[in-house]
Nucleic acid binder design. Structure first.
Lengths: 222, 222
DNA sequence: CATTTATTCAATATTTTTATTGAATAGACG
DNA sequence: CGTCTATTCAATAAAAATATTGAATAAATG
């Protein structure tokens, strides 16, 4: 094998992996799987895809070894193969957030209309935890919370929040988080909480970002 | 705009950026540009592409704002827009190196045949620098060295190495590096040096990896 | 063993990406 | 101003990715 053939092999493989991520639906699926195991049915529902279509995209990710499966009874659950998959996804996301005006504008525009509240970075949250009383609120679906959440976070899925406001403290500051910077659940939660007189902000990023930094998490079994 | 439209926009943009990297030639071009500015002509030569073809790929990267241009006389030089581009590329590379058996096998197979020498990680090199005498050898083309190199590294491009061996010390250990883990120049250099009785190893990664970690670098003007 | 259910496969039409070729452009330089 | 040169553009053919549909599969359950 000569140098050129060697390079073609190497960059070909790198491109193959990159291609397997290079699709809007698959980018969304990866973010979803970064929360934990999810069944095909659920992935399709969350991403508004026909099941056959979701399955097809999952096959692409599986072929690139970005995801693994785990059969549980009648369901097949998909999960990310390892941390590096999320790290690569995150690097691409950071690149997107930083570079592409279009995304920033879209995010900002969408948020400004309904949810123009302050947000808290991971570093700031770490400080708040160390230096005072604070309530951390996980508004993702319960299955995601169970599979891993920020240590000491309380779980109230966004759909239940309006009915369960009394479980939250009026005085101490609340930081709500969900799947990541594009996840709207946290925005909706903060809007609802502020409206109801709570002191609330959202976490800029999400649970997988927290976890990948090695910060303390808890798992509620499964 | 509803939630689904918002998501479609966001993940669409992320996929657009990812797609712009998702091609073997463009993966190679990005690695090359991580060394510094390079003209279209040179990019085409280094990647064995017809010039029109290289230009086309560069347009794709430019549209995604991954690269910027800088006209110098008759030539147009391309460079990465910022550090995050290399970071994302690196994350994908790490994913590839770690995940895909194919890449590992190809790399190993190719190296074993001719270049089965020990290599040194960046952390190990840092230690060696702190704790003793060591010669760091940059075997990339001189233009790349000039645009940035590991602090105190000596430049001897691989093509000149055989004629310039006398410039190197026989006693102190030599660590040769080039563009990255897939760059063969460092392997060739180590092979040549060991053959000639020097004590030499290659750096596992390359200059951009060193730089992105914030380790000391030098620039020779331009 | 037959049925149910979640998932995958297969076939096809559509769209997008890529390579190739030759012409066009834009700036430098005499 | 005209020429030269590096780069880009444009047109086309070929290859690959994607969406859609309905059928096939494989495991669980009665």
């Amino acid at each position: 094998m000569n140098k050129r053939q060697f390079k073609d092999k190497v960059y070909g493989e790198l491109a193959r992996i990159t291609k397997s991520m290079a699709n809007p639906h698959r980018m969304e699926i990866i973010e979803l799987l970064a929360q934990g195991e999810v069944s095909v049915e659920e992935i399709a529902a969350q991403t508004n895809l026909p099941i056959a279509n979701a399955s097809q995209h999952l096959q692409v990710l599986k072929q690139a070894q970005l995801v693994e499966i785990n059969r549980q009874g009648n369901f097949i659950f998909y999960r990310l193969s390892n941390d590096n998959v999320f790290k690569a996804w995150k690097a691409l996301r950071d690149l997107g957030v930083e570079r592409i005006v279009a995304v920033e504008n879209v995010v900002r525009e969408f948020r400004k209309s309904k949810f123009d509240f302050e947000s808290v970075t991971i570093d700031e949250l770490v400080e708040k935890i160390e230096s005072g009383k604070i309530t951390i609120l996980d508004v993702r679906p319960e299955s995601e919370y169970k599979q891993g959440h920020i240590a000491n976070a309380v779980s109230i899925p966004i759909e239940e929040l309006s009915k369960r406001l009394k479980e939250l403290p009026k005085r101490t500051e609340i930081v709500a988080y969900c799947r990541g910077p594009f996840c709207v659940y946290a925005d909706e939660a903060v809007a609802m909480l502020v409206q109801a007189g709570f002191k609330a902000k959202r976490l800029t990023e999400g649970f997988p970002d927290w976890k990948v930094q090695g910060l303390p998490i808890e798992v509620s079994m499964n």
